[in-house]
């Protein structure tokens, strides 16, 4: 259970969550675009992780974020949903060569266009869930939709930027 890979992931988890709570939480553009980089951690976990573990990690991450955001339940529900959908979506968009020699669904392994096709729909789903739960229903439909789309774009932009900065070894296309 305790090996180098797990410790490394725990460390990355801490970085993402601390980054979310201390920095990204304050990054709001035009009162609409929010940055939820902590979902980058769920998205970038290795392909080998089991679905059960993935969902438990998502659930726990959501709980921690919720405690700090005073929105108990919201991020838990959305992140669990994201973790549930991730393997399904990864199977649905298998690239031509399959996932041989690919450790994680990251930009350096599979290229920018694949990464966007992978992350944008999942993020949009996650953020729509969050904002609709937060709004408590479907009144203000357009407003919530705009908020979720703007946030998806901002989060994806920051996530791609982070990967160019910190996961820099590898090929790009």
């Amino acid at each position: 259970m305790i090996n180098i890979e797990n410790i490394k992931q725990a460390f990355i988890w801490l970085l993402f969550v601390a980054g979310q709570l201390l920095l990204a939480q304050n990054l709001v553009l035009f009162n609409k675009a929010f940055c939820f980089i902590y979902l980058g951690f769920i998205l970038l976990l290795p392909l080998g992780i089991s679905r059960i573990n993935l969902m438990l990690v998502g659930f726990f991450t959501g709980l921690i974020i919720d405690i700090f955001y005073n929105s108990l339940g919201t991020h838990m529900a959305a992140t669990t949903l994201l973790a549930f959908l991730r393997p399904l979506w990864i199977n649905a968009i298998t690239p031509r060569g399959g996932y041989e020699n690919v450790s994680a669904p990251a930009l350096k392994n599979l290229g920018l266009s694949w990464f966007l096709a992978y992350s944008l729909p999942l993020m949009a789903f996650h953020l729509l869930t969050i904002f609709f739960i937060e709004a408590g229903g479907f009144h203000m439909f357009i407003f919530v939709l705009m908020k979720a789309l703007a946030s998806t774009l901002l989060t994806a932009f920051v996530l791609v930027l982070l990967q160019y900065l910190f996961y820099s070894k590898g090929r790009y296309s």
Binding site: I52, M55, L56, F59, G62, L72, G73, T74, M76, A77, T80, L81, F84, I133
Partner: peptide, 13 residues
């Protein structure tokens, strides 16, 4: 498990 976790979060919301 997914259903269980969602029910827990929904209940908390």
């Amino acid at each position: 498990l997914f259903l269980l976790l969602e029910v827990i979060s929904g209940w908390l919301v």
